[in-house]
Design a protein around this nucleic acid. Structure first.
Lengths: 217, 217, 217, 217
DNA sequence: AATGAATGAGGCTTCATTCAT
DNA sequence: GATGAATGAAGCCTCATTCAT
């Protein structure tokens, strides 16, 4: 009896997780497709192949869905960046690797890429994690003399703003994948790396990211 | 009689233009306030103090309103930039002046600032005028050796992306007005200007923009 | 021009009042039919022959409709009682006249009768007016020695409770119209009037109410 | 084996009864709390701590639940009245005892009191048992000359209507517990008992009911 | 028996748009 | 031209009910 109950509960749990995952996946696809404002719950459930009511079983409020989406994308990004979490001493290299890696993963999984772009203009709690991480890297690099000493907010806005625009053109198909090489290179130059070194670092980071990014899903 | 008719027609014409202006102004205010998605036509007509039907007399389709908004914004920007349209030889100085001037005008008229930010995440057709102008300046500057020779798309994305992020933080109040000095400086460095000169140019352009921007309305 | 505008406004006003009246009438009918809880806005608009949206033009919140219904029924009752507002010295006769008159009007217009019964169990602000009026009459009658001296709350609950139950049976068709004669008579007896006189007063008040109540609509 | 089976079956039976009782109790509490219209099955199962499906195992249709609720309430009332089922000759005393006893039990167990009030405005089939019992008592009392000879329906509506209103004010806290003394007294007077005797009977019945009602749960 | 995930009908509300005056 | 009442499509959300495990 006991075992039976446990097995049953586990099975239910698994099914529940599956449906939840289907709904999240569907929501991501739809949002990437129509934008966060035009997407309706009807769209989500249609894409997921479940009924209206089921959606509310999993996400009683819209907030809940946004939170889940947020978590999902953050975790995916984290997983992307995990391999380079440590072992890289040069902050310029580190930054280049991160930027190229994220961009590559978004290109490989355009749905998520779109989502990241679209979701930004939404009242979702902003992804302050990445900002904070950037700030830490930049300050350390200034301390070690690698990066120019300037307002970290300015540096951050330069990096994130440029990255975002580049990402947009990339997923739009307006530019080719090596657009990122130039962009990251420019960012590094602004931060104080010499042009020659910048280009080299960016190019190598690009290749590394390329190689590492396989099978998005 | 003839005169009477003409006078009457002119008066009607003038009233018409006035109502139209009121509607555009109202729409801008409302959009800047609630965002483009939350704004309803009801809001527009309420803010403008006219009836629902009147709105459709002026803007039969939503497209028409968007176009008017776009035109309005662009023209205001153009007017802002008019004084520096000519007479400036150094593209670095020119770019710094433009960026600071636009930012200053957005700060001085937050409604328009917000509008520019909000409108971007919308299916509103963006006006490529500014992009094209930037490209022209940049290419000329490369030709004259002032700017680094790199993909103009990368340079553009760096400049516009950084600018947009900075603008956002500015209207959000997350950074002070001189944040722009650092940001523009970084952009110029990326484009090949030396750090010292960049800072000097940016600082001077900032002051000039400050001085020029008075009374937004 | 001026006249034209005014005439137009008046016409619009009139049409508006008409639609509003149609909606209230429809709501009353539907509520009397299905009860206040089972009635849906869909029912109201279907009965009124207008569209969903129109309902919300007139009653943005459900509260607004309830308030209108409340006002409507109160006013109708007041009109019913107007003729006996003055000129009757004996409180026993006055009370009998009021009770019979109200009951007769509810019988003549069953929709409103039902509504009064159904609406009571609803969070509508209770009709404290009638309670207050009863209390005043009763206290005066005690002072003049006509009614027994007892807790006015008890007297009120007896009168209103009995009346309400009687009304229910009446609109249900469970009892004939002269059921009211007995009921009112019992109430008067409880208040200290002799049985013989009670019966006489009640019977006469019943006839008077009958005669007065014509054309419900 | 046999014994084992029987014991097991008995245990199952007992558990079954327990769950059923829990559901009924929960439903009563919830209905008394939120009113019959606002109460949902979700509320019932949550309050009872069982699953949705279980509810339907016990009450396949909503009718079934209503019936159970009705039965429960009636039986509780019957139990309350059992001690005075016999041995009381004076119908005036009997009636006073019944009314006070019921009221006291509702005051002692407000949940059931509220339930009785709330349930009335519902399509729940009312149980006519008490009406029938009243009618029998009244007719006998008329035959014996104790009560005034009048339409039994009128007498019944007077008694039940007044009682209901009084009960409402009581559970609302609008009146104190001895409000019932006056109310019952008035009823008896209406039925032909002299004022002095009425008051005495009502007061004594009130005390007796008080004394008898202990521990509601 | 008990569970709880899934269902979908049914009600609510908003809002762009039309049109008679 | 201006008006604003009327419209109805399109979303949102709840909840009684079913059913596989």
């Amino acid at each position: 009896m006991r075992v039976n109950h446990e097995a049953r509960a586990a099975a239910a749990e698994s099914r529940r997780a599956q449906t939840r995952a289907r709904l999240i996946k569907a929501a991501m696809t739809v949002i990437a497709d129509k934008g966060p404002e035009a997407a309706s719950i009807e769209d989500f459930v249609a894409a997921a192949g479940v009924s209206r009511g089921t959606f509310y079983n999993y996400f009683p409020t819209f907030e809940d869905l946004l939170h889940a989406l947020n978590t999902e994308t953050s975790e995916a990004l984290d997983k992307t960046l995990e391999p380079i979490r440590s072992g890289i001493d040069d902050p310029a290299v580190l930054l280049a690797l991160v930027l190229h890696r994220v961009m590559a993963s978004f290109v490989a999984d355009p749905v998520r890429g779109w989502l990241s772009l679209k979701i930004e203009s939404t009242p979702i709690p902003r992804q302050a994690v990445f900002e904070a991480r950037f700030d830490a890297i930049y300050k350390a690099a200034v301390a070690s003399g690698r990066f120019r000493d300037c307002e970290v907010a300015a540096a951050r806005n330069l990096a994130f703003g440029a990255f975002r625009m580049g990402l947009r053109d990339l997923v739009l198909g307006a530019v080719g994948p090596d657009h990122a090489v130039d962009l990251v290179s420019l960012i590094l130059i602004a931060f104080g790396v010499t042009p020659d070194e910048s280009t080299k670092i960016s190019r190598e980071a690009f290749s590394a990211a390329r190689a590492a990014t396989r099978r998005p899903e």
